[in-house]
Write a protein that binds this DNA or RNA. Sequence first.
DNA 1: AAGGAAATTGAAATTCATTTTCAATATAAA
DNA 2: TTTATATTGAAAATGAATTTCAATTTCCTT
Lengths: 146, 146
Amino acid sequence: MTKEISEKKERLKTFMKQKGFKSTRQRDIIASEFLNCEDHVTAEELYKKVSRRHKDIGSTTVYRTLKLLAESGLATARVFADQLTRYEPVSEDEHHDHLICLDCGSIIEFEDPKLERLQERIASDFRFHIVDHKVEFYGYCWDCKK
Amino acid sequence: MTKEISEKKERLKTFMKQKGFKSTRQRDIIASEFLNCEDHVTAEELYKKVSRRHKDIGSTTVYRTLKLLAESGLATARVFADQLTRYEPVSEDEHHDHLICLDCGSIIEFEDPKLERLQERIASDFRFHIVDHKVEFYGYCWDCKK
DNA sequence: AAGGAAATTGAAATTCATTTTCAATATAAA
DNA sequence: TTTATATTGAAAATGAATTTCAATTTCCTT
Ligand SMILES: [Mn+2]
Ligand SMILES: [Mn+2]
Ligand SMILES: [Zn+2]
Ligand SMILES: [Zn+2]
């Protein structure tokens, strides 16, 4: 377990204590498995991974723990075109958007300051106060285009 | 019924004939109701509108007809944060994105050439071939901010 | 017009991800 | 320990959307 991950688990513990939530074996296992897979996983996908070695952990608990991770700020929930709720670990206050391949499903992450600034300009045009945004580009990655 | 709407209904007829689909009273009523409400409606919402005056039309048919309208190019399906599939009439090849108020739910449409160009630049950075995109800004509209 | 193949309809059943319920169990503070 | 409270997993419930199916329509073809 890397330093980053154990530090995150520490943050989770703090969050739970502060909120009056209890630390459990299940939450610990699920959080570890989640933080180790740097993917955009669904609850079911993570449940499959977890239950390979822990057949006693139910999928309901995985759904619940992912929600908890999101509340604690360690995970973000994302919904792409397939309408499944996916979670990804959050690293620092970094924000990014996604390029999604319609063929192989691969997801490329990108960050673009121009895009962020453009958003501000558009918002002010409409006197709108933006608190969040969703930018997804769908198409074909280099490999699939060939 | 405006000229634009009757012209659209004509296009739908052409599309249906060409595909071997049949014209029915239900489809006609549902399409009219849809084209008249310049909104981002869900199937259930449209079903409620339709069934006010046509209690014999079932919701299944509304779901099916909206799909048909999307296939014919007269409607586009959109999914915002509430995860419901919404449809909106398509006018010409015009493309637009959305600002969505988290308080009152109002939707502001906008078009930004800079955004479209930026997308191209980002795509080429990743050698990605974009065919579609989704840009949604969430926040608070002027009225709700007050 | 009438006949008939093929498409459409509405109700009910089904799907599928996610949430809720609930009795049994685990946690942690005293 | 004791005890109050939170958590768990199985099963049931939810809710949007789709599928199934028998009855009805549509629209060619005679
Ligand atoms: Mn990501
Ligand atoms: Mn719109
Ligand atoms: Zn690909
Ligand atoms: Zn508002």
